[in-house]
């Protein structure tokens, strides 16, 4: 079942067309990495999903219910963590969570127990000072706690790690990983290593549409090219091998850097076995022979170039 469905979404700001018929489906319990360049329209999409922005056309459903601009009805299913969450600095974390709980309509006893549980989860259980004295990382963690307060079925995080130092980033990613299986997470970012680390589904937004979508392994499979890296014992060996007539074929790209030769065969012009046979025929014993999977960065670069 898809918890979030977006179809044919269009949105522009003045002459800048940000979304051009975006279609997207987020399966339940996924940790969904929503990737795109800065300004690609990730935040715009999320704000439309939250009913904070009005799309020019298209539709959005959350848990099967249509999202309407200005209405918070579908937001009862959603927890939202903005990129830089803003709080009332004069409040303490528990007071802020109490305010959020009262707005959500949770009973007082549940607000108390849930606040304690979430503050423990985000590592702020012992913190009772005013939020104005919090670091960015602490605010981000409190942001996660408030977003999870009403046990949302969908947690939307807008670039939650982009403004954090490495320790803060790791803490936020660990918290998001910890709720895997309980809540569906849509996680927008342009930090690809974060996506690779915790996301099981990935979508790349480019030119207002999804340029890539699926699980990382599916996408890698779809975009797999025969790509190999060979490290030779000596530079001359590598040079000689790269000049072999068998490798001088259309569709084969060679890149020699020192002792390392990278071979990319876009249309299956050459396979791993053939390369091993060639090495053997030349009586070359390489130090390393590696069949390479495209990384998310390779895929992203390919899609957005």
């Amino acid at each position: 079942m898809n918890i979030l469905e977006i179809s044919d979404l269009h949105m522009s700001f003045g002459s800048n067309q940000v979304l051009r018929g975006l279609n997207m489906a987020v399966p339940e319990h996924a940790i969904y990495g929503f990737v795109g360049r800065n300004g690609a329209g990730k935040t715009t999409t999320m704000k439309i999903v939250l009913g904070l922005l009005k799309a020019q056309s298209g539709s959005v459903t959350v848990c099967g219910e249509k999202v309407s601009y200005g209405s918070a009805r579908t937001n009862r299913h959603i927890g939202y963590l903005p990129d830089v969450p803003e709080f009332y600095g004069y409040m303490r974390p528990r007071e802020y969570l109490k305010l959020c709980g009262e707005i959500t309509g949770l009973p007082a006893a549940e607000i108390k127990s849930r606040s304690a549980e979430l503050l423990e989860l985000v590592g702020l259980a012992g913190v009772n000072r005013r939020i104005s004295g919090f670091s960015r990382g602490m605010k981000q963690r409190l942001g996660i706690a408030q977003a999870l307060l009403n046990k949302p079925r969908l947690l939307i995080c807008d670039e939650p790690t982009s403004a954090l130092d490495p320790i803060g980033r790791r803490q936020v990613l660990e918290i998001l990983s910890a709720i895997r299986g309980q809540t569906t997470v849509v996680f927008s970012t342009h930090i690809l290593s974060d996506v690779e680390r915790i996301c099981d589904h990935i979508a790349v937004l480019e030119q207002g549409r999804l340029a890539l979508a699926g699980t990382l392994s599916e996408i890698q499979k779809q975009h797999r090219r025969n790509s190999f890296r060979i490290r030779f014992a000596a530079e001359e060996e590598g040079r000689a091998f790269s000049q072999l007539a068998e490798l001088d074929r259309p569709g084969i790209e060679l890149e020699l850097e020192g002792r390392e030769l990278q071979i990319v065969s876009g249309d299956d012009s050459i396979g791993g076995q053939e390369l091993i046979d060639l090495l053997s025929a030349q009586q070359i014993a390489p130090e390393k022979f590696e069949a390479m999977e495209p990384t998310l960065e390779d895929l992203f670069t390919e899609v957005v170039k």
């Binding site: 904070l52 918070a72 009805r73 937001n75 939202y80 903005p82 959020c100 707005i103 009403n150």
Partner: peptide
């Protein structure tokens, strides 16, 4: 400041 965003997304009218 954006302080209302959290609360509006929680259903505050």
């Amino acid at each position: 400041k954006g302080t209302l965003i959290n609360l509006l997304t929680k259903g505050l009218s």
